[in-house]
């Protein structure tokens, strides 16, 4: 119980200190800028496509984007394209009912979050080990509480950043895209932020786990970037090279150890796959962190 309280204290201080200092500002700005730019450019692209389509059909062009999108979204060729992209009929069935803005944001959040997580949080542990500031803490609390507290603190930080990025993306869409200012859409954007947050946890665990292995913050960041690149590369390999026989038959099992192996569960509407996917991704995050912690536990600081 005491260990949990200590962990929570470390997490709260990590969060509080990040919010007070410039560090949090950098994270929040990174997320906000990326979300706003992504939404703005996507809507512009959509508007351009719609204008060209209207011109080709010799129809009057709309002032706002999104007028033709709903029809386009439900068209067969578009759905075929989505089937190719998702490679999962269940996911496709779930997402075809979504507003395009949600999907633009979800795509952004799921694609960029791992990289942003690594850039922002990947060196937190190494930084404190390298500067020696960890030495002021770990005679006051256990190494486990400190590591876990840092992880929880960063998780909360990423969660806040994703929520704000979701809200700002909604704000951009509301003013730039026709019919996208509904409260339902806002709630759905919050939901996608939550899903992206869950998806960020294993990457955070991976980056922070690796951060235990070195005293150099820059080395930790490089290791984190290499690790997520490897994860993506393996996911692609698994997706395209899996066979039913030989060593390639084991590739899907390897995929279960990677965050991408469970990503699509977070795109589902039903509670069961969503809960299972979330639980697995959170567990993976803790396992990655624990692997790094196992090294840190026995090292001199």
């Amino acid at each position: 119980m005491n260990a949990l309280r200590q962990t929570w204290r470390v997490a709260c201080y990590e969060w509080f200190d990040a919010l007070r200092s410039r560090r949090a500002l950098v994270v929040l700005l990174l997320y906000l800028a990326a979300a706003v730019c992504n939404m703005y450019w996507s809507i512009n692209l959509l508007h351009k496509l719609e204008t060209e389509l209207a011109s080709a059909l010799q129809l009057p062009a709309s002032e706002q984007a999104g007028v033709v999108s709903t029809a386009l979204w439900k068209s067969k060729p578009f759905q075929r394209m989505m089937t190719k992209m998702t490679q999962n009929d269940l996911v496709l069935r779930d997402i075809t009912g979504k507003h395009p803005v949600e999907l633009i944001y979800a795509w952004f959040a799921f694609f960029y979050t791992p990289l942003l997580v690594v850039l922002v949080a990947g060196n937190r542990i190494a930084e404190e080990i390298g500067s020696g500031s960890v030495r002021y803490v770990i005679f006051r609390t256990s190494r486990a509480s400190w590591s876990l507290g840092k992880f929880v603190g960063q998780t909360l930080m990423i969660g806040l950043a994703l929520m704000l990025s979701g809200a700002s993306a909604y704000a951009v869409a509301k003013f730039r895209l026709a019919g996208s200012g509904t409260p339902d859409l806002f709630l759905n954007m919050v939901q996608w932020s939550l899903r992206a947050w869950i998806y960020s946890i294993p990457y955070l665990g991976l980056a922070m786990g690796l951060s235990h292995l070195t005293r150099s913050p820059s080395k930790a960041t490089v290791m984190g970037i290499l690790a997520i690149t490897l994860c993506f590369a393996l996911s692609i390999l698994i997706r395209h090279f899996t066979l039913d026989t030989g060593w390639r038959a084991f590739l899907p099992h390897l995929g279960q150890l990677l965050p991408d192996g469970h990503k699509m569960l977070l795109w589902r509407n039903a509670a069961a796959p969503l809960v299972a996917g979330s639980a697995t991704l959170v567990t993976l995050g803790f396992c990655y962190l624990l692997t790094g912690y196992a090294f840190f536990r026995n090292r001199d600081v």
Partner: peptide, 14 residues
């Protein structure tokens, strides 16, 4: 038990 370690920085932004 507390310690003043040698050559150890406090967190700079705190």
């Amino acid at each position: 038990v507390t310690l003043l370690p040698q050559d150890s920085e406090l967190p700079l932004e705190s």
